[in-house]
């Protein structure tokens, strides 16, 4: 699967016009065509596409993934810091979003069709519908420029003396990523919860005289988590590359930005590996979703009965 993907991605990138050398010389009349020819040969760009793929694949199989052209470093030296940054950012915002989503989803389901439910529902849809970069700009204006309490972007440097100093840089990106994803998590949770609450075993539990909070937290929540976990796992893979826009606005050096730069900069080696990683993450998300389903399914069948 990944091998097939690598070929598809290779061909797609190859279909993009121009080559790195043209970009290098684009605005500089001093570079002669002799120079361009020499550089093209040096970077192996004078060979046909399939030949380059074969070269790349055979080197990759022996563990040599080549050098990033736009960063002049081995591909993984470039990817690993970006991967780390993205993992921190996504881990935090994703965790936050899932927690808030579960909480507000359960809350909304419990108060179904009452005012609070409508309010949460409205907020959730608002979060889903807001253009992410518009939101990011509004946040920057509010917190960085008007209130001046948070930095507008970037990452902590050596100047960061305390934990808070470096943590400050994460606040706005995390908030905007969380707002973008919490809506759908809330909605999934709410829908799953309403489904479960309507089922017989809940009615039984209520009839036994258990307190509402016991019913919700003890019985319903566990059963409602299954579909949510599936969706959330699927989401995770997509998020991996989807933080691109947030990363760009907040000048956050993560994977999304790396992928974008490598594609636009015609950096074959880097784009390939980064895209493959992104695909692998999506696949992993799918596997996790399936795994979660298998783990939890039997119990659900017993408890929920046929639907």
């Amino acid at each position: 699967m990944l091998a097939a993907m690598s070929f598809v991605i290779f061909v797609l990138i190859g279909l993009m016009p121009g080559d790195p050398i043209d970009l290098m010389i684009s605005a500089n009349p001093d570079v002669t065509s002799e120079d361009a020819e020499r550089l093209r040969k040096l970077h192996g760009l004078d060979q046909p596409l399939w030949q380059r793929y074969v070269n790349w694949a055979s080197a990759a199989l022996s563990g040599d993934f080549g050098y990033s052209r736009i960063h002049a470093k081995p591909v993984f030296d470039v990817i690993s810091p970006a991967l780390q940054s993205t993992a921190i950012l996504l881990g935090l915002s994703f965790g936050l979003s899932v927690c808030i989503g579960i909480f507000s989803g359960v809350f909304a389901a419990y108060h179904q069709n009452r005012r609070l439910d409508h309010l949460i529902n409205f907020a959730a849809f608002a979060g889903i519908s807001i253009p992410p970069f518009w939101l990011a700009i509004l946040l920057i204006i509010l917190f960085s420029v008007i209130l001046r309490i948070l930095p507008a972007g970037g990452m902590g440097t050596v100047e960061a003396s305390s934990l808070w100093e470096s943590a400050r840089y994460f606040v706005l990106p995390i908030v905007s990523l969380t707002i973008a994803s919490v809506g759908s998590h809330t909605r999934y949770m709410r829908a799953a919860m309403i489904d479960v609450l309507r089922q017989d075993f809940i009615r039984t539990a209520q009839a036994k005289g258990l307190s509402p909070s016991r019913v919700v937290l003890g019985h319903a929540l566990r059963n409602a988590m299954l579909p949510v976990i599936t969706v959330v796992a699927l989401d995770f893979g997509a998020l991996f590359s989807g933080a691109l826009i947030t990363e760009m606005i907040f000048a956050y050096p993560g994977m999304g930005k790396l992928i974008f730069d490598s594609i636009m900069g015609n950096d074959f080696n880097l784009a390939l590996i980064a895209l493959l990683l992104a695909t692998a993450m999506t696949l992993l998300g799918n596997l996790l979703a399936d795994g979660a389903y298998v783990c939890l399914d039997p119990r659900i069948r017993l408890a929920g009965g046929s639907r």
């Binding site: 920057i140 204006i141 960085s144 420029v145 001046r148 948070l150 930095p151 507008a152 972007g153 970037g154 606005i249 907040f250 000048a251």
Partner: peptide
């Protein structure tokens, strides 16, 4: 964003 960074003092 660059301008925002300037205005926020970053």
């Amino acid at each position: 964003a660059l301008e925002a960074n300037l205005l926020s003092g970053s």
